[in-house]
Amino acid sequence: MKILVVDDFSTMRRIVKNLLRDLGFTNTHEADDGTSAWPMLQSGDFDFVVTDWNMPGMTGIELLQKIRADERLKSVPVLMVTAEAKRDQIVAAAQAGVNGYVVKPFTAAALKEKIEKIFERVDG
């Protein structure tokens, strides 16, 4: 399972990576915004994307829309892990085809639950 973690704060990337490793996912890669994530997604065979919303350059929602519009990437599950908590934004993310939405500050349990749910649905 190859996972891409997209967040503009390196500490948040580290926290997410550590939690993922705890869940048994060791093959994680990092990008600091949508713009740098996009070429990585294009060239790498990523199975899962965890992204923040608010980032310089390309935001998380733009990245999500781009992934869903791409013929090859459109089925890659995307989990949004973000401080953005406005009702309209969550609705927008759902409409754009997000697979899970975790609001910061989050707990290890919340992240675990969402990730397990995503793979249950993807595998099932």
Partner: peptide
């Protein structure tokens, strides 16, 4: 405006 992001919500 929503797409750009608001940052953490202080007034929950």
């Amino acid at each position: 405006k929503d797409a750009k992001g608001h940052g953490p919500q202080i007034h929950k």
